[in-house]
Amino acid sequence: MNIDITSAIACAFMVVGVFFAMTSALGMIRFPDVYTRIHAGTKALTGGALMTLVGAALYYPAWQVKAKILLIALFFLITNPISSHAIARACYLHGIKPTVSYKDDYGENLNNNGEETER
């Protein structure tokens, strides 16, 4: 069994990425409120999925497939912040307050302005 350096690096990337995915899923179960769960579910999972995809791209020999896998990773990198922001804003505007919050500037701002300005 010959282990060359590239596939060893790819396996390391995959293992670390899958570990991050598992811990972010664990955080999604253990964290107390919706916003912290968004932190776990979208941000950390982005890192885990990116690392796993980079590992898969290194593992595969044909480089057209490598480019396609990296394209999927790039798509994740662009769309995940957008969707997590959309969910967080929808949560707040719907009226779900953070359960333990030490500071809430946004609620004060919404109460002061009343009317939302140009969005």
């Binding site: 579910g41 999972l45 999925a49 796993t52 995809l53 898969a56």
Partner: peptide
């Protein structure tokens, strides 16, 4: 929104699984 976030995470995991199956 808890369910939405979890379902979003499930789609990300499923996409990664598809890429791994391709490899």
């Amino acid at each position: 929104p808890d369910r939405i976030v979890a379902a979003d995470a499930l789609t990300i995991i499923l996409t990664t699984v598809l890429a791994l199956l391709a490899v």
